[in-house]
């Protein structure tokens, strides 16, 4: 446990002095600000329009959560797919490139210490990213009355998705010594996991005789993060969705551990 924290704190310090981290955090903040402002303006324009046409019933139905916060966090999730690989690409691959894996693997620590240490560091970093996003809905509480529960559920959703993706990134980073390859591989995995899986299964199921609601189709759809994210953004915190994040993180961490361990036997 102490070793895990030792690895995590070293990694976190290195992350925060790396230029990549600052580029990512800057881009992330700028994109979040732009998206938020754009959705805020859009929200206001619709409100004015509805007022002009005197559609008071529609105005009653409009609320900050459904029309602003949910789509805002949803778009940040998509941005995450493309920015997170830059954060996680070096987590394990740079150890191999630096030769520091030789230090770690000859120290009296376990491979789990290495994998979990990296995971904790990555989780710490994405917590900062989530906090930046959470700042914008927080402003709305000053001027309006969004639902607190729904907003928190949305922010937590982004946090859990990010942490799960960190586990994916660690796995992709552990199979190579090149950060570039790790970046591309993580991106491919995340895009597949996040968006492509349901489409692919729909297309291939339509071709076969099985149909879209067959067992395979449903289980593949469960494997994709999209459906879980959608539900949680709407404020539905379900144990099944939480279990999804825990299980997929565990699977990718286990894979990373196996890859690192088997590399020594080659």
């Amino acid at each position: 446990m102490t070793h895990t924290l030792t690895i995590a704190s070293r990694e976190l310090r290195s992350l925060f002095v790396s230029p990549v981290a600052y580029v990512v955090l800057t881009l992330w903040s700028v994109i979040a600000g732009t998206f938020f402002l754009a959705s805020l303006i859009g929200f206001q324009e619709r409100l004015i329009q509805l007022q002009q046409y005197q559609m008071f019933q529609q105005i009653e139905l409009m609320n900050l959560n459904d029309e602003l916060i949910e789509p805002f966090i949803g778009s940040m999730w998509v941005i995450l797919l493309f920015l997170l690989p830059a954060v996680t690409m070096g987590l394990v691959s740079s150890e191999k490139a630096n030769g520091t894996d030789e230090l770690l693997l000859t120290s009296p620590i376990s491979i789990w210490d290495i994998v979990l240490g990296k995971f904790l560091a990555g989780a710490g970093f994405v917590t900062v990213m989530t906090a930046i996003v959470a700042f914008f809905p927080a402003i709305l509480f000053v001027y309006g009355e969004p639902e607190l529960g729904k907003t928190i559920s949305g922010v937590l959703c982004l946090l859990f998705v990010s942490i799960t993706y960190v586990a994916v990134g660690i796995f992709a980073s552990s199979v190579t010594r090149s950060q570039l390859i790790a970046f591309v591989f993580t991106l491919v995995l995340l895009v597949m996991l996040g968006m492509m899986l349901p489409f692919i299964i729909d297309i291939s199921m339509a071709g076969s005789g099985l149909g879209r609601e067959s067992g395979i189709a449903q289980s593949v759809r469960w494997m994709s993060t999209g459906s879980h994210v959608d539900r949680m953004l709407k404020g539905l915190v379900d144990t099944a969705d939480l279990a999804y994040f825990v299980i997929s993180s565990a699977v990718f961490l286990l894979l990373s551990k196996t890859v690192i361990e088997s590399a020594r036997w080659r």
């Binding site: 310090r13 030769g99 230090l103 770690l104 120290s107 009296p108």
Partner: peptide, 22 residues
């Protein structure tokens, strides 16, 4: 090892402290 296992972004003091913990 043949190539010293160093983290280029760390200082000697913090690096040696890290190894001491390991």
């Amino acid at each position: 090892p043949e190539t010293p296992p160093l983290y280029p972004e760390m200082t000697p003091a913090s690096y040696v402290d890290f190894v001491a913990r390991l």
